[in-house]
């Protein structure tokens, strides 16, 4: 999936993946897509819930070699 920006949050523990995602998405325009890579298992549910509560859209998520990948469209 195409993205406008990639955030590498691998190796970071909660709450940093979300803190960084929030910062990164603030720098995007509405409609642009942020791709996030994280290894913290808690990030999965939290990113989905955070996207909803922030009005963003979690387009897709995937898991590859213990890395979680998320594509979030800025709302």
């Amino acid at each position: 999936m195409n993205s406008d920006k990639v955030l590498d949050a691998r190796g970071l523990a909660c709450p940093m993946p979300i803190v960084k995602t929030k910062k990164a998405i603030n720098e995007l325009e509405t409609g642009q897509v942020l791709e996030v890579h994280a290894t913290d298992k808690g990030a999965k549910a939290d990113l989905a819930a955070w996207s909803r509560s922030g009005g963003h859209e979690l387009l897709e998520s995937a898991e590859e070699n213990d890395v979680f990948k998320f594509w979030i469209k800025k709302g």
């Binding site: 709450p15 979300i18 803190v19 929030k22 939290d46 819930a49 955070w50 509560s53 922030g54």
Partner: peptide, 10 residues
């Protein structure tokens, strides 16, 4: 007990 996710408090 009261629940507010941390990501809503950033």
């Amino acid at each position: 007990i009261f629940n507010t996710p941390y990501f809503d408090l950033l």
